[in-house]
Amino acid sequence: MATMNYATQVLQMLAGALLLISFAMLAERRSRRLVTLLVWQGVVLVASTALVAATAHQTHLYYSAAITLILKVGILPWILLRLMRKLGIERDNEPLLNVPTLMLVGLVLVIFAFGLAQPVSALATTITRRTLGIALAVVLLAFLMILARRKAFTQVIGFLALENGLFFAATSTTYGMPLVVELGIALDLLVGVFIFGIFFFQISEQFDSLDLQHLESLKED
């Protein structure tokens, strides 16, 4: 029981780290650093999944930790960095409006997430169930990021952070979805990022910029 408690505490610390990274992303201006933060989120996910696998003796979680490691710490950041280099947006700064307001809205979202997660946490049987609130908060913060950003590239990072939150929700409430389903989700994600890449080129070819402010001609008229 002692090791269990110890593991739970480490897990809660990792969950906290995940939340902190989400807040950092919300306030980060530079695209390059956003990718770094995304990689860190991936690392935390791998660590927490592996830890849950070890303490709860769930072998299939080792596989999903391995998939996460390959996909989210390896392939996806590599694709994103390559795209950045090709499009020449490595040093891009994005002006952010009102960071304090964004943080405050973020805080409210976190409280809301905890409230929402309460009944589900009570029902779940996993050792990690207390962290569901954090997982939901990560999802909502990623939403906020997608809404607040104007650049296509940052929106995609927000989208991937959203998926990280969902993955964390799955491991923390149920010890993960069945492996085959998780493989399917990973495949969709990978294809999605490839399509994002194709899009970046289409957008920058047509609009000479990845700024979505140019993308506002389709208004109701």
């Binding site: 939403f143 929106q155 989208f159 959203l162 999605g192 899009f199 289409q202 957008i203 047509q206 993308l215």
Partner: peptide, 22 residues
């Protein structure tokens, strides 16, 4: 068609449905 309007429409479709389906 790779026109501006079509790329914009596809991007909107992608992001909105992506978030929805999440």
């Amino acid at each position: 068609y790779r026109t501006r309007a079509s790329i914009e429409a596809a991007w909107k479709y992608f992001i909105l449905c992506g978030v929805g389906i999440a």
